[in-house]
């Protein structure tokens, strides 16, 4: 048991929704452990159960089974103790459009017993660090979608929680704001020792931000490890061939499948995908074979495995297909 030392310790956490007499098993008994100061990425497609898990850990939703200790307090016995120590940034927003940004921040801080001067100082610092310095006196409704998203994050961090849950924090942010947010999240951990538990369905986000990744699919955790560990699970490098037409693609798949150590190629219209242990070595061979067969490849890509590949390997489905 590592129970005492960890920030989150959940055992058999389960949630079944009842909707119109039908039971929906959103989370099917998951175990997870998050250490102090860790940044953990919770990755999974739409409807996998990420938000449901987060809400349970935040005391917003009672689990229908299992137990958890969050930030040193038992989820069921001492939910107020949990709430005191955590911050939560919901997927769905947190401010009234008519409310003034600064007032919304200060009012939220009061619940944690923070005085107005401190709240104002912290709020303005946080806004500035997320590139929102000039919005203090504006109404929340007048902010753009991405600005409002960053305001949600400021609200969730105002009391310097030891543990923060971020539900798809970068949804709707432009690339620069995302990069900025990632920097801020890393700084939170490095400077304040904050533990971060974030959900995302962006591979690159989970990959570049997380110390450890949990992959959830259909209410169960299907894999867990550092980004590097997870990528190792995928058999080698991905080769993507683009051909002129579908018959060419079929022939190319047959040829490519005979490469040393190759897995079964997947054909998708004009595109053939497969994995080989060493892409750099296999490629010249493959191209020579194709030329000999009179097939003209119009595009070739070799990629180191991504988390998308991991997900594909584990579940047989691509994460990217489900991202709309």
């Amino acid at each position: 048991m590592t129970g005492m030392g960890s920030m989150i310790e959940a055992r058999g956490l389960k949630r079944t929704y009842k909707a119109r007499g039908k039971a929906i098993e959103a989370v099917r008994g998951i175990d997870l452990t998050v250490q102090h100061g860790e940044i953990v990425g919770f990755l999974g497609p739409n409807g996998a159960g990420k938000t449901t898990t987060l809400k349970m850990l935040c005391t917003l939703l009672e689990p229908t089974g299992g137990s958890a200790t969050v930030a040193g307090s038992d989820l069921r016995q001492d939910s107020v103790g949990v709430r005191r120590k955590i911050g939560y940034v919901s997927q769905a927003g947190s401010t009234s459009p008519e409310a003034v940004v600064g007032e919304e921040i200060m009012s939220h801080a009061q619940f944690y017993g923070i005085d107005r001067a401190t709240a104002k100082q912290r709020g303005q610092d946080l806004l500035a660090s997320l590139d929102l310095s000039d919005v203090w006196g504006r109404t929340c409704g007048s902010l753009s979608g991405g600005q409002r998203r960053r305001l949600d994050i400021v609200m969730g961090l105002i009391h310097k929680p030891a543990l923060v849950f971020l539900d798809e924090p970068s949804t709707g942010l432009d690339p620069q704001s995302r990069a900025n947010l990632w920097t801020h999240i890393r700084k939170l951990r490095d400077e304040l020792g904050t533990t971060v538990f974030l959900t995302t369905h962006y591979m690159d986000e989970a990959d570049s931000l997380s110390d450890r990744i949990l992959i959830i699919d259909n209410g169960t955790i299907v894999a867990e490890g550092t980004p590097a560990e997870l990528k190792k699970r995928v058999s080698g490098d991905a080769i993507t061939l683009t051909l002129r037409n579908e018959p060419d693609a079929a022939s190319a798949a047959e040829i490519a499948g005979k490469l040393d150590g190759a897995d079964a190629p997947v054909v998708d219209a004009h595109v053939v995908r497969l994995h080989v242990p060493d892409g750099g070595r296999a490629l010249p061979l493959l191209l020579a074979e194709l030329t000999r067969a009179g097939i003209d490849a119009i595009g070739v890509d070799v990629n180191r495995p991504t988390l998308d590949d991991v997900f594909l390997t584990l579940t047989g489905r691509s994460l990217r297909d489900q991202e709309i």
Binding site: T59, L60, Y88, S90, A92, S94, T95, S96, F111, Y112
Partner: peptide
Amino acid sequence: IAEWRSGVIERQLVTPA
């Protein structure tokens, strides 16, 4: 209801209030 939709109620529920 409007406040629920904008997420304010949930935000307050997650505080120790």
